[in-house]
Amino acid sequence: MSDLNGVSVFVEAADAGGFSAAAERLNLSRSAVGKTVAKLEQRLGVRLFHRTTRTQSLTDEGQLFYENCLRALSEIRAGEALLESGKQEIQGRLRLSMPVHFGRQCIMPLLSELLRTHPRLEFDLNFSDRNVDLVEDGFDLAIRTGPLRSEPDLMTRKIVDQRMTVCASPAYLEANGTPETIDDLMSHQAILYRRSGQPHAWSFPGKGTQVRTVTPPSRLRLDDLTSIADAAASGFGIAWLPCWLVRNAIASGSLVRILTDTPALSYGTYVVWPKTQYMPSKLRLLIDTLVARLPPMME
């Protein structure tokens, strides 16, 4: 049990971004958090955090361990919630807001399972790509992608990374050749995502924390991701899309991943909810289910 406590303190420190913030959340001293993490590092034989006098950040080994610990703890909590539901059935309504395409394809199947398992659970769902005001609009939880601004009235938890991929149809590649580098994209036709009147550039990890962006030539610009995938499968050009969106098309062969030796950009995806002293069991079950079940769907 002490090993599990050490893991939970480590996860809290990673979520909070440092030992001091984790200590405040856990009602412990900063030194107690640091000693717990140090004992865990000693037991594992690896360094989990880079440490300076003011900040702590995860090492590569720490990031890998964190992602696995997060899933394991969520499975445990989901299991506890399921056992608890046998004593006191999880019930009530949850109002959720989520991005349109991600919500439909990835979140809805998991919500459907929860509805079947818990007959007295209710969901009111809002599919929108805008960031709602949770408190003012009366939402219990929202799903957001990308960097988050600090909002003191909200709690935040990372649920998954969405990885991007570059893809095209076999027919397009046969007719136009296969790009082998990011620079090669500028000699091809792209299908671009347009939002607020401007096409989105394609982003790739650069050196260090830098991000390299390119906007290939395009004759076709759309504001719907599914339509972009369909147009790419029809041979109209190359697309840059989330892996989860094109997973089935790639499995069927209608789309082919390209630039597979080039590092792919990942977007952090988070759940946010209004800060409260007590988290209802229905909300805990939902969050833990998302953390445990979403990662395998992202490849």
Rank of each mutant, 00 (worst) to 15 (best):
A142C: 07
T262S: 14
T165Q: 14
G62Y: 00
R54I: 04
F123V: 03
K207A: 15
S97N: 10
Y172Q: 12
V272S: 09
F102E: 09
L245D: 00
R25Q: 11
E80T: 00
R30A: 00
K158D: 07
L82C: 01
H50W: 06
L64E: 07
T165F: 00
R221L: 14
L222F: 12
E84A: 11
D140K: 01
L111T: 00
E61Y: 03
E180W: 02
E84L: 06
L114E: 00
R71Y: 11
A38N: 08
M297L: 15
V211W: 06
T117F: 02
I238K: 03
P280H: 10
E180M: 09
P274D: 04
Y278W: 09
S31I: 11
L245V: 07
D3K: 12
Y278A: 14
L58A: 08
K207H: 09
L94N: 07
R93K: 11
H50L: 13
R30S: 06
L70G: 12
I250Y: 02
N248P: 03
N176M: 10
R194Q: 11
E41M: 07
A232P: 02
N5L: 15
T215S: 11
I250E: 15
G237E: 05
H50K: 05
A292G: 09
V256I: 13
S227P: 00
V132G: 08
N126Q: 05
A171M: 12
H101C: 10
I182D: 05
L125D: 03
T181P: 08
R77A: 12
E80S: 03
F65E: 06
V211T: 10
D223Q: 13
A23G: 06
L121P: 06
V291W: 01
A142L: 01
H200A: 15
N5Q: 14
L220A: 08
A201W: 05
I250K: 12
P205Y: 05
T52S: 15
S169Y: 02
P217E: 00
D161M: 12
